[in-house]
Amino acid sequence: MAIMIAIQMAVFLVLWTTSSFRLIPTPMEILKSLQSLIASQNLIYELWNSTWLCLKSLLIATIISLIISYATVIPFFKPIGYLISKFRFWTLVGLSFVFTLITHSGHELKVTLMVFGITVFFVTSMVSIIQSIPKYEFYHARTLRMNEWQVVWEVIILGRLDQVLEVIRQNFAIAWMMLTMVEGISRAEGGIGVLLLNNNKLLRLSDVFAIQLVILLMGIFLDYTIGKLREFFFPYSKLTLEK
C-alpha cells in the first residue's frame, strides 16, 4: 500500500515539474512561496489562528448538537431535530447579516457562523444514527431490567459513542471547508482564509497554491488524528469491518 502511494506520488511529481502548462506553479516555486509566506506574512500564526477557530467551533457545535440529538428521543423534542436538519439548505451568506447584529465581535461572529453551519449537519447525522437503532436493541436492554433512562444511556449514548466520533470527523471536514468562507466574511482577525483571499486578489498564484497546500495538509492531518482517536477510545468500532 505504502509503496503504491509512493509510486503514484512520484509519477505525479514528475508530471507536475516537467509539465509545459505554465499556469500552474512548479513545486520549487511553491516551496519558495511557502518560505516567504512564513517569513513575511506570518503563515504559521495565521494557520494556528484558523485551526483554533475551527476546533473551538467544532467543540461548541458538538456539545450543542449532542444535546439536541439526544433530546429528540423525547417525543416533545423530535420536531426540533427535524427542523434543524432542514436549516442545512439555508445559505450562510444572508444569515451572516443577522448574526452580525446579535454578536459583539468579529471573532464571535465567525464562531457563531461556524457553529451554526456545523450544528445543522451534525444534528442531521446524529438523529439519523439514533433513529436507525433497531427495536431489538431496546428490547434487549429492557429485558435486563433497565429503566428508560438507563436504556437511553446504554443503547443510544454509550452504544453509539464511537459513531459520534465518526460524525465529528465528517463535520470537521465540513467545518474546514467553511473556514475560509467564514473568515472572508469578517476579516478583521486575520486567519489563513484571509491570507488566501488577499493573495488571490493580488494574483500571486504560487502563494495561493502554497496556502491551499497547507490547508489541505493540515486538514488531512487533523482528519487522521480524529480517526486515530476513535481507534484509541473505541477499539471495538472497527472489529466488524473487513479491514
Binding site: 431489538y136 428490547y139 434487549h140 429485558t143 454509550l158 452504544g159 459513542l161 473505541f234 471495538y236
Partner: peptide, 10 residues
C-alpha cells in the same frame, strides 16, 4: 434470549 441474541457491542 432474542432470536438474534443482541449484546452491548461497546
Amino acid at each position: 434470549v432474542q432470536q438474534n441474541y443482541p449484546l452491548f457491542m461497546h
